[in-house]
């Protein structure tokens, strides 16, 4: 025996904790060789899938929150504009409108805004309007709906218009409604994209698992012949795919977080987008951790099912 190494006590195996799974230190005694499962290409593909999933997820969260804000706005209140009119004094217009509102069921409170309130509302749009005191400003009536109100808006608009000239029910409600349905479509689109990403990831993993089993055919057969149940082989293989999912998922997440931070930064710089981009809030970021977790779960389960199915067909 030429082997100089006489310290032949097998060294204790390093603990296979989750950190070693992420940084890729495969436990020394893996029965199945990694066989490209954790190769750079596959990790890159899974990272890209995770990145896209994070973007879709982030977009979904953002849009959902905006839509909720809008909905709250929509459900809580509405505004009535009272435009100055030659034939009738503004006070009379307002009291006519209030009289109509008084008869409508589901209205909690209706009050005319003071001129100062209106100026405060318009300032952001018109600038400090101190010198345009004489600019004819519309009066506004702020209406607060009770929470279970079911007001027929078009009927109300007609009655208000009939009550006095120059009274208009603000139609931003309709505009918001359209925005909301667009938001809902966007959420469904995100869900569709997330499903597609999941399916693609599963398909990639199934493919890679089959390739890995084929490449390790001899190992698998010997494992069987020494009495390993299919579950043992599945555990060995799925461990590599868990590692793949964690590494790919973590990389994708990191790239996505950088992207979101960049968007938020560009948004706050102003001018990059016409609409203010709410971006992700600090409290949203932990939710993104779901993505690598789900990716790792997906790769692991897909690999396990594939192994069990392929082996089930062997003798």
């Amino acid at each position: 025996m030429t082997d100089a190494d006489t310290s032949d006590k097998a060294s204790p195996r390093p603990a296979s904790n989750w950190i070693s799974l992420i940084v890729g230190r495969t436990p020394r005694s893996g029965i199945m060789p990694p066989a490209d499962v954790t190769g750079a290409t596959l990790v890159l593909v899974v990272a890209a899938m995770s990145y896209l999933a994070c973007l879709a997820f982030g977009a979904m969260v953002t849009v959902t929150r905006s839509a909720n804000d809008w909905t709250a706005q929509l459900e809580g209140s509405l505004t009535i504009q009272v435009k100055p009119h030659a034939e009738i004094a503004t006070e009379d217009q307002i009291s006519a409108a209030l009289a109509v509102l008084d008869e409508v069921e589901g209205i909690e409170r209706a009050s005319a805004l003071s001129e100062a309130d209106i100026r405060a509302l318009l300032d952001p749009w018109l600038g400090e309007t101190t010198e345009s005191e004489d600019l004819p400003l519309p009066s506004l009536i702020d209406v607060e709906l009770s929470s279970d109100a079911n007001v027929d808006m078009s009927r109300l608009a007609e009655r208000l218009a009939a009550a006095a000239p120059g009274i208009e029910l603000d139609t931003h409600r309709q505009w918001l409604g359209e925005l909301l349905s667009a938001a809902r479509s966007a959420v469904w689109l995100s869900i569709g994209i997330l499903s597609l990403i999941t399916l693609t990831t599963v398909a990639i993993v199934v493919f890679a698992t089959r390739a890995s089993l084929a490449a390790n055919h001899e190992s698998v057969e010997v494992l069987h012949l020494v009495g390993a149940p299919d579950e043992f082989v599945a555990n060995e293989v799925q461990r590599h795919f868990l590692q793949l999912g964690l590494r790919g998922g973590a990389s994708g997440l990191a790239a996505a977080v950088l992207t979101f931070l960049a968007i938020t930064w560009l948004g706050s710089e102003g001018g990059a987008f016409l609409l203010p981009v709410p971006g992700l809030m600090l409290s949203d970021y932990p939710w993104l951790l779901l993505v690598p977790a789900i990716v790792a779960l997906t790769t692991t389960l897909a690999a396990r099912m594939t192994v069990l199915r392929v082996l089930g067909r062997m003798i």
């Binding site: 097998a10 005694s29 029965i31 060789p33 001899e218 190992s219 010997v222 494992l223 020494v226």
Partner: peptide, 13 residues
């Protein structure tokens, strides 16, 4: 199995 040591091969069953 080539990717395992002699010890690991023998311990496999």
């Amino acid at each position: 199995l080539e990717h395992l040591t002699t010890y690991e091969n023998v311990a496999l069953p």
